[in-house]
Every structure is written in structure tokens, then in C-alpha cells.
Amino acid sequence: MSAVEQHVRARIVTEADVAPVETGEGALPVLLRYDPAVDPDTVRVALPHDSGPREWVLPRELLERGLRAPAGTGDVRVWPCGRVQTVVEFHAGETCSVVQFENRALTRFLRRTHRAAAEPVAH
């Protein structure tokens, strides 16, 4: 089983303590990571920040459900936004960051995670 990493462009819709150095109108680089050897049920999302990336861990299944319908409670919530985008809302205490992803990028990443999870374990 091999890890999957994918850089995607995303828009930070709202800013909080986990906000990047510069938001503006452009999309920012976000790293999606899945390592079935570490935890086959979770993905990691690294958001850019002026003091280094802020990493969030969330259930892979939550990200998948959120592509189709609102999902999640607590620290991470995911929901579709129109036909081509998905919003992920990250909460940390009193702060919140809302990040908008292209569905195509998330779907491609999730497909790669399923292939990685299905790979035989090397001995």
C-alpha cells in the first residue's frame, strides 16, 4: 500500500487563525494526503499559512459523502456547492476556515485513495 499525495488549488472563502499569508481572488495550493499504512480511514488536508501549513485530519468517508450532500458535525463539515465545487469548513475553537475545492480534484484524489487501499501489502 502506497501513500497518495495530490496538490490541488482551492479558494479560501473565509479566513481564521488557519488562513494563508495572502488570500485575494486567486486559488491557493492545498496538499491532500492519504496513507493507508498509517490510517486507512483518514485523509489529511494541509492549508497554507504564514507560519507553515496547517494540517487537518478527517475521515475519508466524510469527504466522499460531502461531495453529494451536507455531511459532518464538529470540527469538519463538508457540503456540495453547486455542480462543480465542494466546500470544507474547518473549525478550531472560536476560529473557522472555509475552503472551496473543485469536485474534479477531490474525486480524482479519492479514486487514487481507493486504488492505494486496494493494493496488496508488500512483505
Rank of each mutant, 00 (worst) to 15 (best):
V21I: 07
G82K: 11
L110D: 01
R77M: 11
R60W: 15
A46S: 15
P80A: 11
A122D: 13
A117L: 14
D50Q: 10
V4S: 01
E94Y: 06
G52M: 09
T23M: 05
R11A: 07
P70S: 08
A122Y: 12
V78M: 08
V87P: 02
L63S: 02
E89H: 12
L106S: 01
N103F: 10
A37Q: 04
V98P: 01
P120N: 12
E119K: 09
P70W: 12
T107D: 05
H91K: 15
A16V: 00
S51K: 12
D35S: 01
E22C: 00
S2A: 05
V18E: 07
Q100C: 13
I12Y: 00
V78Y: 13
E89K: 10
V8R: 04
P20W: 04
E15A: 04
P36Y: 02
A92K: 14
G74I: 07
N103H: 10
V121R: 13
T95S: 12
G52Y: 13
D41S: 15
V18R: 05
E15W: 00
A71Y: 07
D35K: 05
T14V: 01
L110P: 02
A69V: 06
V121L: 10
P48A: 05
V99F: 03
E64T: 12
R68C: 01
P20V: 01
A118T: 07
P29Q: 13
E89G: 07
L32C: 02
P53I: 06
M1Y: 09
R54A: 12
A16P: 00
H7C: 06
E55L: 07
T23P: 03
R9Q: 15
G82L: 09
V121D: 09
A16H: 02
V76N: 06
E25G: 13
V38I: 13
R115A: 14
V99P: 00
A122S: 12
A117D: 10
E25H: 12
G74D: 10
E25K: 08
V13N: 00
P53M: 07
V57S: 11
A92Y: 15
H91D: 15
T107A: 10
L110G: 01
D41Q: 15
L63P: 03
A118Q: 09
R108A: 14
V98T: 06
V87F: 04
V21A: 14
P53L: 07
A10M: 04
V99K: 00
A116G: 07
R54W: 09
A105E: 14
T113D: 05
E102W: 08
T14C: 00
G66L: 02
Q85H: 15
G93K: 07
R11T: 06
V84I: 04
H91M: 14
T107C: 03
P80K: 11
E61C: 06
D35Y: 04
L28K: 00
T73G: 11
R11H: 05
G74K: 11
V8Y: 09
R60E: 14
V43P: 01
V121G: 05
R83S: 10
V8N: 05
R44C: 12
S2G: 04
L63M: 12
E22N: 06
P29A: 11
L31W: 06
A37T: 05
E102F: 09
A27D: 13
G72C: 06
A37M: 03
V4Q: 00
P40N: 13
V30M: 03
E61G: 12
C81P: 01
V30Y: 02
A117C: 07
P120M: 10
V121N: 05
V87T: 07
G82C: 10
R112N: 02
A117S: 14
